[in-house]
Design a protein around this nucleic acid. Structure first.
Lengths: 103, 103
DNA sequence: CAGGCATATACGCGTCAAGGCATGTACGGA
DNA sequence: TCCGTACATGCCTTGACGCGTATATGCCTG
């Protein structure tokens, strides 16, 4: 699992790109127009996302269609898993705390 | 939801702090020793984590005991939710793809 | 094969944050 | 009250990153 998954997602523009791709594949120009960002900036972000496995590119004539990939997001989900106990067993923890304070 | 949640988690040392706190509350000195990081560095990271709501501090004499808080991690879980369809309905998507390619 | 379109890369600038070192602050023990 | 402990904060340097502008690469059309 690449450790820089969070660093990739730390960029708001990259998250907006992922959010756009979540609803369907897009070309670079589409993304640049939809996000109101310069085309080179979009290309650079797509490169980062691609090298981290978040997206893949498929050539279509002069354009390249980008598609979101689930892999790194599944890794994120897996990383989050052990922490889920913090709130899923929250009632249990609350009970434990009250028990301790009763003593 | 604070947008810098990912930026906070982008730091490996901060993730290690959270991982340590996941198993129980710790003092600053404990964390510095356990992670082999200088004490000021730990304090700075704890400040970032605290201001982002990941942890809270409880004074105990001269030391301060830090505890992990579920809030921001729940936000992360919520952010991840719409993307979960990418792999949970993966079989459905595969079927759709095959249907399209059959035409 | 020349020209235009879509995308990728190179360069320079400004910003920001991590780390170490030194110092400040608060609490407790002698 | 004075000193030592535990933690926080300030200053400084360094490296990484995002953005825009300019330029290079690839592909299609006439």
């Amino acid at each position: 699992m690449p450790a820089d998954t969070f660093a990739v997602l730390a960029e708001p523009t990259r998250r907006r790109i992922l959010d756009a791709l979540r609803r369907g594949d897009r070309t670079v120009g589409d993304l640049a127009a939809a996000l109101a960002v310069s085309q080179p900036a979009v290309s650079k972000h797509l490169r980062v996302l691609r090298e981290a496995g978040f997206v893949t590119a498929r050539p279509a004539a002069q354009q390249r269609v980008y598609r979101i990939e689930p892999g790194p997001l599944r890794d994120l989900d897996a990383w989050l898993a052990p922490y889920r106990a913090l709130w899923e067993r929250h009632l249990d923890a609350l009970e434990t705390l009250l028990d301790e304070e009763e003593r």
